[in-house]
Lab assay of single mutants.
Amino acid sequence: GATAVSEWTEYKTADGKTYYYNNRTDESTWEKPQELK
């Protein structure tokens, strides 16, 4: 099967917290998305 390329990108805020942003859905989350686990 084809490997899905994750749409999630990991970013850090100014105070060093990590969050994740999805370019396709324009969604952001503090929790690590399922695709990255």
Rank of each mutant, 00 (worst) to 15 (best):
G1V: 13
G1D: 13
G1R: 00
A2S: 13
A2Y: 11
T3G: 12
T3S: 13
T3R: 00
T3H: 13
A4I: 14
A4G: 13
V5Q: 13
V5N: 11
V5E: 14
V5P: 12
S6R: 07
S6H: 09
S6I: 08
S6M: 09
S6L: 09
E7D: 11
E7W: 07
E7L: 07
W8F: 03
W8M: 01
W8L: 01
T9N: 08
T9P: 00
T9Q: 12
E10I: 09
E10Y: 03
E10K: 03
E10V: 09
Y11Q: 10
Y11P: 00
Y11D: 03
Y11K: 14
Y11A: 06
K12R: 11
K12I: 13
T13I: 01
T13M: 05
T13V: 03
T13L: 04
T13P: 00
T13E: 03
T13D: 13
A14E: 11
A14I: 10
A14P: 12
D15G: 07
D15P: 00
D15A: 06
G16H: 02
G16P: 00
G16E: 03
G16D: 04
K17L: 11
K17E: 09
Y19W: 12
Y20R: 00
Y20V: 00
Y20L: 02
Y21R: 07
Y21Q: 05
Y21E: 04
N22Y: 02
N23V: 10
N23S: 15
N23Q: 12
R24G: 08
R24M: 14
R24F: 15
R24I: 15
T25A: 03
T25Q: 04
E27S: 06
E27D: 04
E27F: 04
S28H: 14
S28L: 15
S28F: 15
T29N: 04
T29W: 05
T29F: 07
E31N: 07
E31D: 12
E31L: 07
E31H: 07
K32G: 04
K32Y: 05
K32P: 06
K32I: 10
K32W: 04
K32D: 05
K32M: 12
P33R: 00
P33Y: 01
Q34E: 15
Q34R: 06
Q34Y: 10
Q34I: 13
E35R: 01
E35S: 11
E35F: 07
L36E: 07
K37P: 11
K37N: 15
K37A: 15
K37Q: 15
